[in-house]
Design a protein around this nucleic acid. Structure first.
Length: 553
RNA sequence: GCCCCCAUGGUGUAGCGGUUAGCACGCAGGCCUUUCACGCCUGUAGCACGGGUUCGAUUCCCGUUGGGGGUACCA
């Protein structure tokens, strides 16, 4: 049971949601009775109520709560089309009687079913990764389901290696799915059946008209959409209406009407009968009972076509949400030319999955005016399509790097060590991790800083020349050797510091004039962890050996 | 060409008629300091333009410009 304060707050939240829903349109009706009954139910129930309301905001159907059923559930009341069609029978969703009947036995939960359909023509790009992430967050945040579908109909470019790469990237990101992977190529028969059906119904026809014919037609007809003549062979086109508009209702972008006259009769299958993408997505999404299609904005203009196909099929289309595209720093559409463009690249560059997920979530979505660090759980809880931005975003690796640094520093030494050992393929890294954690932003920055502990000093001629050649450097090193020689083991950063602190003073030199030569002697470079940490980690034997070697050179 | 979308500093965003336009990255300077980082402080820089609507527009409407997407027997 919630305590009173929490309960009251939640009731207020639900009321607010309903009020907002009511403002969406005059046709909306709220199942008012259900709200009153929310009060007094258990924690889990209340939580689900919040999720359900979040789910429907911006959609064209309404969910209420029936407190009489156990577990999470919603009531569906249609607005301008039957709820039963919104959620095909397989979902078990039944239409609530108009007027807000909340009869217990006829209502079941609304489940948000989303999908991620990558085409395995390459590694998982960050744009697609973000799309996958958003869909996943939506599913996980609403108690819904995510379907993974591999769109491998492009036999030329699709490879098993790429499929594996995609699985690997999704797994690395922590994105799991509830159904699939479904391979689109395996639905070929179904697609062919649908095409044949449309042909039989006269909704589609064959024509040999190609791009040139279409272009000529449009030029001759004031840019009206191409309408062909039926032939006995050729590609199969779906007839488009000559009047009216096809309205795309997008959660992120609102409503847009496309004039049907301007739509070309759409090619749904090639001359050899194989379906094209537009036909395949619609059939597959429809068959999978997808309720929300959340995809890149590059598909926005394709949506009216998809809607026409749904119409021809007599199927109810899903709710759409088109995400802003991702651009490179040059303002152009993101591609391989923009450096680390795939998830694999980011991983190999030493970024942590947490940082990548967090950063990706922020590319096109913002929570408020100051919060930008989110755990996965927080993202699931707070992410919503209503707050997704409309404008394209530019992937900024510097910001990712910054975030990654913050995540690196928040990791426990053990955790970071494990990740670094996996990343570098080396073992026994913990001591070095302890003294480098605060200095690195990515896993890749570790080895340049710590490699000399394991593989000996690196070779940097410039550093050598600058800090080891001068006579006073030798003097300093000799003093250092003397000071360290008498230091009893075991060495610690503090005991080393105590022993070394006096050296600059004794020689009347600046600390830097003493420590830099020592640093270069021990590590080979001018950049390393703290000098006392470095000496302590190396230990007496190795330190004196390296100093001795340097002095004898 | 035609259709559609978008528009807050260099970048990602907050804002949803009245704010000194907030936050973060970056950049500049400073502090800290044995190097490099981290951290902290300060600063830099923005509502694309022009018309409306309004007592009042970053916010609403129209246009222009700019950017993007679609326009394939690709996905």
């Amino acid at each position: 049971m919630q305590d009173d304060a929490d309960g009251a707050e939640l009731r207020a939240g639900v009321q607010g949601d309903l009020q907002r829903l009511q403002r969406l349109g005059p046709d909306l009706r709220v199942l008012g009775g259900a709200v009153e009954q929310v009060h007094g139910v258990d924690d889990e129930r209340l939580h689900d109520v919040g999720l359900l309301h979040r789910l429907v905001e911006g959609s064209d159907f309404l969910v209420g709560v029936d407190p009489r059923l156990p577990g999470p559930r919603g009531l569906v009341e249609d607005l301008d089309r039957p709820a039963a069609a919104l959620f095909p029978s397989g979902h078990g969703v039944r239409r609530a009687a108009r007027g807000g009947d909340v009869g217990a036995d006829q209502h079941r939960m609304v489940i948000m079913r989303v999908r991620f359909p990558p085409s395995p023509t390459g590694a998982l790009h960050i744009g697609n990764a973000r799309t996958a992430l958003y869909n996943w967050l939506l599913a996980r945040g609403s108690g819904g389901q995510l379907v993974l579908r591999i769109e491998d109909t492009d036999r030329e470019r699709s490879t098993p290696e790429n499929v594996d790469l995609i699985f690997e990237s999704l797994e690395w990101l922590g994105i799991d799915y509830d159904e699939g992977p479904i391979y689109q190529s395996q639905n070929a028969e179904r697609h062919a059946g649908v095409v044949q059906q449309l042909l039989d119904e006269g909704k589609a026809y064959r024509t040999t008209a190609g791009p040139d014919v279409v272009k000529a037609y449009k030029e001759a007809n004031d840019n009206r959409g191409f309408r062909g003549q039926e032939e006995s062979e050729g590609a199969i086109r779906l007839r488009m209406p000559d009047e009216g508009v096809t309205v795309v209702n997008d959660i992120i972008r609102g409503e847009t009407a496309f004039e049907n006259v301007l739509l070309d009769d759409l090619v749904i299958a090639r001359a050899d009968g194989t379906p094209v993408y537009h036909l395949a997505v619609v059939v597959d999404d429809s068959d999978a009972q997808i309720t929300h299609v959340v995809r890149g904005a590059d598909h926005y203009s394709n949506t009216p076509k998809h809607l026409r196909i749904y119409d021809a099929l007599g199927a109810t289309p899903p709710t759409y949400a088109h995400l802003p595209l991702l651009h490179g720093t040059d303002g152009k559409k993101l591609s391989k030319r923009h450096g680390a463009a795939s998830v694999s690249d980011l991983r190999n560059s030493g970024y942590l999955r947490e940082a990548v997920v967090n950063y990706l979530a922020l590319l096109g979505w913002g929570y408020d005016d100051k919060t930008e660090f989110f755990t996965v759980e927080e993202l699931q809880r707070n992410f919503s399509l209503e707050r997704v931005s409309k404008n394209p975003a530019v992937f900024d690796e510097l910001k990712l790097r910054h975030m990654n640094g913050r995540y690196v520093r928040e990791l426990s030494v053990e955790d970071l060590t494990a990740r670094l050992e996996e990343f570098t393929g080396r073992e026994g890294l913990k001591p070095a991790v302890e003294i480098t954690q605060e200095k690195i932003s990515t896993l890749a920055e570790f080895w340049p800083l710590a490699g000399s502990f394991y593989d000996g000093p690196s070779d940097d001629p410039k550093a050598r020349e600058k800090f080891l050649e001068p006579p006073e450097s030798r003097t300093a090193l000799e003093q250092v050797r003397a000071a360290l020689d008498g230091l009893p083991e075991p060495w610690s950063a503090s005991s080393v510091e105590e022993a070394l602190r006096v050296v600059p003073e004794a020689l009347g030199m600046k600390p830097k004039a003493v420590y830099q030569p020592l640093r270069v002697t021990l590590t080979g470079t001018t950049v390393s962890p703290g000098i006392f940490d470095t000496v302590a980690l190396l230990g007496r034997e190795e330190t004196l050996k390296r100093v001795g070697r340097s002095l004898e050179a």
